[in-house]
Nucleic acid binder design. Sequence first.
DNA 1: TCATTTATGTTGTAAATCCAACAGAAAGGA
DNA 2: TCCTTTCTGTTGGATTTACAACATAAATGA
Lengths: 220, 220
Amino acid sequence: MNPEYLKIINQSELFIGYESHELMLILGCLNAQIKEYQKNQMVFSQGTVIDKIGIVITGTLQLQQTDLFGNNNILTSLGSRNIFGESYAGSGLPIPIEVVASQESTVLFIDYEKIIHPCTKNCIDHSNLVTMMVRLLSIKNMFLTEKIAILSKRTTREKLLHYLNGESKRHQAKTFTIPFNRQGLADYLVVDRSAMSAELSKLKKEGIIEYHKSTFRVLS
Amino acid sequence: MNPEYLKIINQSELFIGYESHELMLILGCLNAQIKEYQKNQMVFSQGTVIDKIGIVITGTLQLQQTDLFGNNNILTSLGSRNIFGESYAGSGLPIPIEVVASQESTVLFIDYEKIIHPCTKNCIDHSNLVTMMVRLLSIKNMFLTEKIAILSKRTTREKLLHYLNGESKRHQAKTFTIPFNRQGLADYLVVDRSAMSAELSKLKKEGIIEYHKSTFRVLS
DNA sequence: TCATTTATGTTGTAAATCCAACAGAAAGGA
DNA sequence: TCCTTTCTGTTGGATTTACAACATAAATGA
């Protein structure tokens, strides 16, 4: 395998922390396979059941979904080191979205079954791949649950307060820096940026929060 | 173990389909333990790292969260057969919520590690517990992702159309029945019931959908 | 059967959001 | 440094929602 590729795989969440010779052995044992895609070529089709996960080596893939009116909605873009398909492969259900290469791309595929039930003999131990996989799914799960809790708030004010309170708890500090600028935060909370800015000002005036740029402080 | 308990455990998603003697052996090998809780007693505390999952045998537990102002928000209620804690145990992160018995309850606990890395010798094979666990996490993940996609739509109309389109695809049919009454659907979409009813009427008038009670048909 | 409760649809009003436009601040580059 | 671009806050008007109140339909139970 191309050593550049190995370096990238080694940076993906699933394979982080291995020595490169270990990684090579594991990938061999997992029967991992590289595949190239041309621009606009389909990687996973909507409605199929998949049994492999993918890791983007080079290029960009897009998760997209077609709506009632035939419009193509782009859900996410995936770049180098990103893992995809793990929830779908694990569920055994047909996938409700499609994955397409939005430019020429290289992808590594691994049989999901081999990750979940690693071989135990004649092979380097890679049973902690299960733990890593489950951790990925679990953490994603927690993030999604938290986001739903936020989106379930009716007003911009409530969404902001829930988000800031959650971040405060997560950092175990009243003062913390968020990984968003204003537009990014508005996108995350699914509200209008200008309305959100106005609400932030109000909260500051009312003495409920303080902030400077992306550093916030909750006062309570 | 109480045979009534066994019957309930056998109905939980994780242990469905086993013969009762198999189940007993597996539970023994997993070192599963029963614990009783009084009303208002804490099961899991916010901020702790947990290494067990729970299955409710009898009674009711509540997942709840305290907000900035000290209000206790109930996120979900858990009843007989429900599994909880799997995402938190799998993540290795401190839990952002607390679990409390809202009435006298009986709970079965299982070490998470033993599910993910089942023993392979001197014991009945229960390696498919990993598969079941991963399937649970994955399917939950897909549901959460779908819900976020819906909640990310700005208007009631868009939320409705996205939801109905998704259900149509899932059922692979233009006509399908949803598991909600109007209030339930409004809660799921996080919109006002009456406004939603009005929007449904509009969509029907415009010839975009048809419906009768909880049976819908998308026309496109 | 009739009475009661629950579910659903309709409407008007108040409140909140979105959108657009703009101005000043901050950041980045020549 | 100056110029340009990006980011942030502010405001007013159009749109959408939430809320409350009510009427009718459907379901439930005595």
